[in-house]
Design a binder for these strands. Structure first.
Lengths: 337, 337
DNA sequence: CTGAAAGCGCTAACAC
DNA sequence: GTGTTAGCGCTTTCAG
């Protein structure tokens, strides 16, 4: 390339990188640029990286890439943010049940490739023991907060999400609202329950005695829990469900009981799994998890750290909570009476 | 590292890479290895790559990473296969409706990073105009076949998948089977219809006159098409649906019509979108798309080409068809009568 | 304004 | 058995 343009490699480097204090004549610049175009020349990012100790690669280790649609959104958010700043993502999948050793190996793979930073995304944990070697490079946690050393992290605001759901029902005029919760212990289980009760109580209702049934977090569990609640004494006119799959089960229970949605029963879900929420009839009003936003926030934060743009002097970072917006579809109306 | 062990870099390189004809004393080997462990030394794959002109990185450009669960499975398949052979994936998302220029830019990004090969995955096309610069490096197409120049490619065997679905129904004793198809023109629309009619005819039934209704490929479309078929004259005892979302709509139509599944009506879907198929009641028997297998097949094929293992002398490769296996759940039984 | 030279961490001939 | 040397393609002082 250098010889093709009849100049030195230095010059090529200078013009192609728009180096600040490089005084180069306009004609030389043009000569270089046109030669580059002719040869289809693109800089070798590898060699650049070796020299400048910056690869422009961000590692992303993600749990369960294939089994939840959530991972895809995180990747997309991270990819968009990274690309906007000239970075590329290197993705590694991990199995959710992977051993610490294998997680460490995943990080090691990324480290050997000299990634500038790592995004460590988990799907359903509150706290996580980050692999020890994760601290060798700037890293941020997505969807979890670290147990030990402090990494910046971003998680959904589950409590506020539940509040949004309940407030939506409250605003529609419901005063008797039931909650179908996940029976498994998980941070989201607890937070959404707190949000449910707290919001009710905050509105002057008795959150402590509102009907709550827990079951397995799928359609079957939702169906069973819904039947229990709806066939109990003084059944609620609205149901908030732990997730969209459970809401799907609640739809079936309502149908069997002759309850029309939203005429006789309003339902709000959680997760915004479009495959379900948009295809149910009527469409399910639900609360969305901010996966895309978490991915892009994390990538941006990571890039700032990598580029040393942040002024934080090693302060232990608070986990950032991202809001869970309501996605209104057709499953909420005023109470029948 | 070299000095830490008190040996030359050559020696380090030799022992860490288990170089064949390198005669090195066992004690030196141990010395090197332990020094490496102490320092937490890992080879710099970047420098290796610069020298050996092999990055061990495979680029993956994938359409609609976030909106379909399919992309995740392709990534997972590719990641597993790549990792098993020491490669890492570099993922770029593209928008499905992206311009040729932007697709070309995506490939260029990968090229600048000196990837050893590229996996180009599309979701819903039969033939695709691959970006021109894709041929600069070994590449394989996933889920599409190229219009122009020949790249190896792998696609689902839609015809055989439809045959599997129909045969399942036939085997259960059904003789009057309807098909709910996608109204949009797409390769899968055509192939599944052919498979439907062909299999019926092959079984001695009249595939040409079997009831077929097309609609938008979602639950609403499925519902409408199912009502049309089921309320027509001489309604079928079984329905094959273009995808699981349409099958979900068919479930609702059946419920409204007082038809029990699978007692009064058997249903088989397509795609195996677990979120839907496993959460419907009863579980939906469906035909799975081999996304994981396509991803891993493609990665393996690509690696073979990259490493020059294949003996094919530039032969124009036939697209490889991968089977769509049946995933039995509970929506198929014998006909009522 | 432009070029020569050193070196990023590694591998591959080739010496010793 | 082990070390020397010459680059891979680039950026970056420092000279001209």
């Amino acid at each position: 390339m250098a010889l093709a343009a009849g100049v030195s490699v230095t010059t090529v480097s200078h013009v192609l990188n728009d180096v600040a204090h490089a005084r180069i004549s306009t004609e030389t610049r043009d000569k270089v640029r046109s030669a580059a175009r002719q040869l289809g020349y693109g800089p070798n990012r590898l060699a650049q990286a070796l020299r400048s100790r910056r690869t422009g690669i961000l590692g992303l280790v993600s749990e369960n890439i294939a089994t939840t649609p959530h991972a895809g959104r995180i990747i997309l958010g991270a990819d968009d943010a990274a690309r906007a700043r000239g970075y590329t993502l290197m993705v590694i999948n991990t199995s959710g049940t992977a051993s610490p050793a294998s997680r460490k190996a995943d990080v090691e793979t990324l480290l050997e490739r000299q990634v500038d930073g790592i995004l460590y995304a988990t799907m359903y944990h509150r706290t996580v023991d980050a692999p020890v070697n994760l601290c060798k490079v700037p890293s941020v946690l997505v969807g979890a907060v670290s147990a030990g050393e402090g990494f910046p992290s971003v998680v959904p605001d589950e409590y506020a999400g539940a509040r949004t759901a309940v407030e939506t029902l409250l605003a529609a005029g419901h005063t008797r609202i039931g909650f179908i919760n996940n029976a498994a212990a998980a941070p989201s289980t607890r937070a959404r329950l707190c949000g449910f009760r707290g919001t009710l109580t905050g509105a002057g209702l008795d959150g402590g005695t509102a009907p709550v049934e827990a079951a397995s977090p799928d359609a079957k569990g939702g169906y069973e829990a819904a039947r229990r609640i709806l066939e109990g004494a003084n059944p609620p006119s609205a149901l908030f469900c732990y997730n969209d799959r459970m809401a799907m089960g609640a739809y079936r229970a309502a149908a069997e009981l002759g309850l029309a949605i939203p005429g006789d029963l309003s339902v709000v879900g959680f997760d915004d799994q479009e495959l379900i929420a948009a295809n149910l009839h009527p469409g399910l009003t639900t609360v969305a998890l901010p996966h895309y936003e978490m991915g892009s926030w994390a990538a941006e934060r990571l890039i700032e750290t990598v580029e040393g743009t942040t002024g934080q002097g090693g302060a232990v970072p608070e986990p950032v909570l991202l809001g869970c917006p309501l996605v209104p579809r057709g499953s909420v109306a005023g109470p029948g009476i």
